[in-house]
Simulated assay, not measured.
Amino acid sequence: MSQASVLPSFRAPGSSEPVIKLAEARKTYKTGSIEFEALRGIDLSIAEGEYVAVVGPSGSGKSTIMNILGCLDTLTSGSYLLAGENVEDLDEAELASVRNRRIGFVFQQFHLLASLSAWRNVELPMMYAGVHRDERRARAVAALERVGLGDRIDNKPGQLSGGQQQRVAVARALVTEPTMILADEPTGNLDSHSTEEVLGLFDELHASGRTIVLITHEHDVAARARRTVHVRDGLITAEEASA
């Protein structure tokens, strides 16, 4: 069986199974004899095409949720089903492929390489996937045009504003055509104008059918999502739909 055949394949909208399902999810970190339970048995389901914000104060467990959903960390106990597949059943190569091809990541820190132009930063996920150079450039330029930076493809990060750098990061997340976008405090380093630009991009991505999970401590940012999940002390304390 080929690697591609055992990777989670995101189903079409309308599928009865959620694309994300956490059940009794627990995560405990250990430092010497000290243990800290970051997640304390949470249940969370997200349907394909949903726009969900996970909101809570610092230390609430929301970034741990993001790391689990993005296959960047593993649960201590409980289960995580991604498109119906138990993540624990995937080996390291399969997890790496899921992270690179199926999930687009956007972080508070833009994680752009200062020595590379915008399009070369955007092409990086495709380099890891073995895409041919000419196709990488074409797709990187198209992604930058999609986020309104078609005239900045050759600019390096130092020549771009904070909002523009985050848009480059969004383009990089989009270039592999992932079905799901995970965004961890993506507006944390932005002014109000740039925040509105980036949230506008997420609105467009949601309208196009992508699943978006937005991690934030800002309630006005969370209000842009269609559903808000409130987290505190490693527990989900409330869920509400946007008006």
Rank of each mutant, 00 (worst) to 15 (best):
I153F: 04
G162D: 05
F202L: 10
D89Y: 05
S115W: 05
L90W: 11
V170T: 09
R101P: 07
I181R: 02
L190A: 05
Q109V: 09
N121P: 09
T179G: 14
G150V: 01
R210D: 14
E196G: 06
G163I: 04
L112V: 11
W119I: 01
T179R: 15
A171M: 09
S161Y: 08
Q166E: 13
L144G: 01
Q109G: 09
D191H: 03
R139M: 10
V106E: 08
R120V: 04
R139W: 02
A142W: 08
V213L: 13
A93W: 12
H193A: 12
V141T: 03
M180P: 06
S161A: 06
S194H: 03
R101Q: 15
L112G: 09
A143N: 03
L205V: 08
R167T: 06
F110V: 06
N155E: 12
R146H: 10
A140I: 02
A93R: 15
H193P: 00
V131S: 07
H217M: 13
E92R: 11
N189G: 01
V168S: 06
T216Y: 14
M126P: 02
S194K: 01
I181V: 12
F110M: 05
Y128C: 05
Q159P: 05
M180C: 09
G162W: 05
G163H: 02
P157Q: 07
N155W: 00
F110Y: 14
H111K: 07
D184S: 05
L124Y: 12
T195V: 04
E135R: 02
T176M: 14
P125C: 09
